[in-house]
Design a protein around this nucleic acid. Sequence first.
DNA 1: CCGGATCCAGTACGATACTG
DNA 2: CAGTATCGTACTGGATCCGG
Lengths: 117, 117
Amino acid sequence: MEAYPKLTIEIMGLVADKWSLLTVYILGEGTLRFSELRRRAVPISQKMLTQTLRVLERHGLVVRRVLPTAPPQVEYSLSPLGRSFLSAASVICAWTRDNLAEVDAARQRFDQERSAA
Amino acid sequence: MEAYPKLTIEIMGLVADKWSLLTVYILGEGTLRFSELRRRAVPISQKMLTQTLRVLERHGLVVRRVLPTAPPQVEYSLSPLGRSFLSAASVICAWTRDNLAEVDAARQRFDQERSAA
DNA sequence: CCGGATCCAGTACGATACTG
DNA sequence: CAGTATCGTACTGGATCCGG
């Protein structure tokens, strides 16, 4: 018997990914075009953004809409499922922001004790 | 100007990791020894569990306590910081559980449309 | 402007074997 | 029991070039 099925871990891996979190978090601000999204999600690379958006689209969290213009424009937005995930993602992002200093301090303490060997 | 500092992304990477989430989530049940933790966190490998616990300990989320027995026992538990993170992690875990089916369905739909090319 | 394709260094991860 | 060490494979993620 497997405590956590493969599928669960797989989806966790999708959802518990820093770029996914960041992307969804920023898309929470509204519908954005690729280049604008990239600018706001610095320092994500273009490749990772493309890749992350594909994965999120594939799993139904993000809607990709190509506008029939020249040059073509592509808009990204959250699906209803994506918005429901946003509320969870926000909690993680907020925690990170609020506890950044403490986590960093703990790490420095840990590393210092180590180097004292 | 960098929208998200390197440190923030680094901590996000720590915190937005499937094994970290899972480990903290399970440690939420209480203090556990290594082997018991491993059993409950299936299908995590022993190596990944060790590694994840080190990282979590280093960043102040987990407390490692070696008992002076023979054979040695090691207990892991959440620090106060870890418990504060648990509430955020739980939200992600709960979302995953509740939306597993829908995400999986979206993926199958997406893949089917793709293969119809 | 919005990406895809390719190359490559580095890392994740599992399997296995060994230690105090 | 609770790890550490090593190996091999697969994937990550940046850099760069290319194309509609």
